[in-house]
C-alpha cells in the first residue's frame, strides 16, 4: 500500500463519526465578519493607507502621474543609486529622468547579478489600506518576485485611488491565485530579538511608496502641486 492510500485510509477511518449529510461548506461557515472596517471615502482610504505604511516605516510620497519621472529621479539620486532594476511593462516615462543605469529584469540574471543592483522601481497590483500592504502579482511593471527582494531599496508606485482597496477581503477579490503573489507591508523586519521589531533583515531595508494621482491630502490643503509630501521618516 502506498503512503497516499495509507494516509487517506486513516483519514477516512478517523472521520467515521461524520455523517454523510454533514453541513456543506456553503452553510458551515458564518460570513458575518466585515468586508471592510469603517466607512471611508476614497480619499480617506488612501489616507489610511499612507498612515499604515508609515507606521511600519515605509516612506510615502505623493505626486501627480505627470510628475513621476522627476520624483523617481530625485528619490534614486538621494539614495545614490548607480543602477536600477526595471521590470517589463514599467512605463518608460517613469525612469525617463533617472540617472542610474537601467538593468532589465531577465530570467537569465543570476542572484549575484541582482545583488549588485542598488534599487528597483515597480508598480503594484493592489494596495490594502487597513493593513498598509502592497501586493505585487508579477503583472506589467512588477517583474519577477526576486527583483523586489534582493536589491536593498524598493520604490513602488501605487496609482491612487484606483489601485487602493480598504481591506484584505477586498484585495483577495481583485487578485488571481494563478499568479505568484507577494504581499509587502513595510520593509523587511524581525521581532526575533526580545520581540522588538527591528527593520531590515533580508529584504529591501528601504521601502518608498509613491502615490501617483490627484488625491488632495486630508488636511494638506495648500500644499503646492509638485512638492511631494513625505511621511514616515
Amino acid at each position: 500500500m502506498s503512503d497516499r492510500e495509507r494516509v487517506l485510509g486513516r483519514v477516512r477511518r478517523a472521520l467515521a463519526d461524520v455523517p454523510e449529510d454533514d453541513t456543506p461548506y456553503d452553510r458551515a461557515i458564518p460570513r458575518s465578519y466585515a468586508r471592510e472596517h469603517g466607512v471611508r471615502s476614497a480619499e480617506e482610504t488612501v489616507e489610511l493607507l499612507a498612515e499604515n505604511l508609515a507606521d511600519y516605516r515605509a516612506v510615502v510620497h505623493r505626486c501627480a502621474e505627470a510628475e513621476l519621472p522627476v520624483l523617481i529621479a530625485r528619490l534614486l539620486a538621494a539614495r545614490g543609486a548607480k543602477s536600477v532594476l526595471v521590470p517589463d511593462g514599467l512605463p518608460s516615462a517613469w525612469l525617463a529622468n533617472a540617472d542610474p543605469v537601467p538593468v532589465p529584469d531577465r530570467a537569465e540574471s543570476t542572484p549575484y547579478e541582482l545583488d549588485a543592483v542598488d534599487s528597483v522601481v515597480t508598480g503594484c497590483a493592489v494596495a490594502v489600506a487597513e493593513t498598509g500592504t502592497l501586493v505585487l502579482d508579477g503583472g506589467p511593471g512588477q517583474g519577477r518576485r526576486r527583483i523586489t527582494l534582493v536589491p536593498d531599496h524598493h520604490i513602488c508606485v501605487v496609482r491612487v485611488p484606483e489601485q487602493v482597496v480598504a481591506s484584505v477581503p477586498q484585495a483577495l477579490e481583485r487578485l488571481s491565485p494563478t499568479r505568484p503573489l507577494t504581499w509587502i507591508s513595510g520593509p523587511s523586519a524581525t521581532s526575533d530579538i526580545e520581540l522588538n521589531r527591528v527593520e531590515g533583515v533580508h529584504g529591501p531595508r528601504t521601502l518608498e511608496v509613491v502615490f501617483a494621482g490627484v488625491i488632495p491630502s486630508v488636511g494638506g490643503a495648500g500644499r503646492p502641486e509638485g512638492t511631494p509630501a513625505s511621511v514616515g521618516e
Partner: peptide, 8 residues
Amino acid sequence: RMNPYTSM
C-alpha cells in the same frame, strides 16, 4: 496589522 511579507 500585517506581517512584512506573505508569499503565495
